[in-house]
Design a protein around this nucleic acid. Structure first.
Lengths: 195, 195
DNA sequence: CGAATGACAGATATTGAAATCTGTCAGCTG
DNA sequence: CAGCTGACAGATTTCAATATCTGTCATTCG
């Protein structure tokens, strides 16, 4: 982490914060650590982020947005709605599971944020639900799905698959039955969506 | 809590422990407290329960079994399977929500136990899933439900409704949308079960 | 003049010593 | 002799003193 002499931007701070979080975990990462990693005083960090919570939230938001981005490709894909729905849910499960495994410390940060009821997590969920809504609307349009209220239905699908994307279940994602449990739930939900 | 002079039984210890847990919460309740409440030495408690964890688990088991008992009546009820399924899920949601509200300290104990992966919670879940399996089997028999593997389907239904009975969501059970979210998920699942 | 600094007050976290608790067991008691 | 006790060792928790951190702001620097 050689302190570059480039101007200090929010982006560079987020980069450094992510690195510090990865190394120290959410409980031990301090703003002073971040400033040290950047070779600046911690006061400078506060010029870009009002509080430590705001910084943590910004890092998490960036991290969550990467997932949303991956998934949005599936929403727009050129396939029948049922396949898109199955792919989307599978991709969400895979992405969360991968993040929990590869970046345990960042994942812990995300979990902390969930508990704190930050807006970033709420927005992420709203974003994902809206992607789901679009897939379901497409299915209603083609006659593949029957849903009176696509948005409520999307929320129901999202909540019903919580076990496979909600951080509070992260421990169980690596257990043997997880994959087949996932298929069973998705099959049931897809059957429920059909006219 | 006047120390009765009756013989010390496992049952009396469980009674006293529940009271101590209710009063102090899982973090502060000690075996010494339980012994004091009973007017005996803590060594006597260890005659009936090998460890503190075993005592905590026994209390939780008793408490969980009360819920299982309430629900088993619905499994045996004289109604069509779909109604039984809906009633059973609604009763499970209501029971958990009530317990979280009325006995927050005991509920916290239950949550701690879930995290510790004690067998009592696993057995409780197995018990509930087997009740669900019986309802689904009944539905398959009458032709109301189509399920190739009733047990796997029961597990799927249980997992898909996790948001409405898993302690990690307890906070959200009192929020305004909870009831309608519940109905949306149950409707979707019931549709998925129909032939 | 805008960006960065570093000293500061109050809040939070760490630390290590003292208190309490868990689990055992030899011996007491009815 | 079955059931209970209380002293004990080691583990855990508490508590208060100390150190560190968060967030602010008057001042410096380029």
């Amino acid at each position: 982490m050689a302190p570059t002499s480039e101007t200090l931007t929010a982006e560079r701070i987020l980069e450094a914060t992510e690195e510090v979080l990865r190394r120290h975990g959410p409980a031990k990462a301090t703003v002073v650590d971040v400033a040290r990693a950047l070779g600046v005083s911690h006061g400078s960090v506060y010029r870009h982020f009002r509080t430590k919570a705001a910084l943590r939230e910004a890092v998490t938001k960036r991290w969550l947005d990467r997932t949303s981005g991956e998934l949005s490709g599936i929403v727009a894909a050129d396939r029948d709605p049922e396949t898109r729905l199955r792919d989307w849910l599978a991709a969400l499960f895979a992405a969360k599971r991968r993040k929990a495994g590869d970046d345990p410390e960042l994942f812990a940060t995300y979990t902390v944020l969930t508990d704190e009821n930050g807006t970033a997590v709420g927005e992420h969920i709203a974003d994902l639900t809206s992607q789901l809504t679009r897939i379901i609307e497409a299915g209603v349009a083609t006659g593949d799905f029957a849903a009176i209220d696509p948005e409520a239905t999307a929320r129901a699908v999202f909540q019903a698959t919580g076990r496979f994307h909600d951080p509070c279940y992260a421990r169980e994602w690596e257990e043997p039955g997880a994959e087949s449990d996932f298929r069973a739930v998705v099959d049931l939900l897809v059957r429920g969506l059909r006219p």
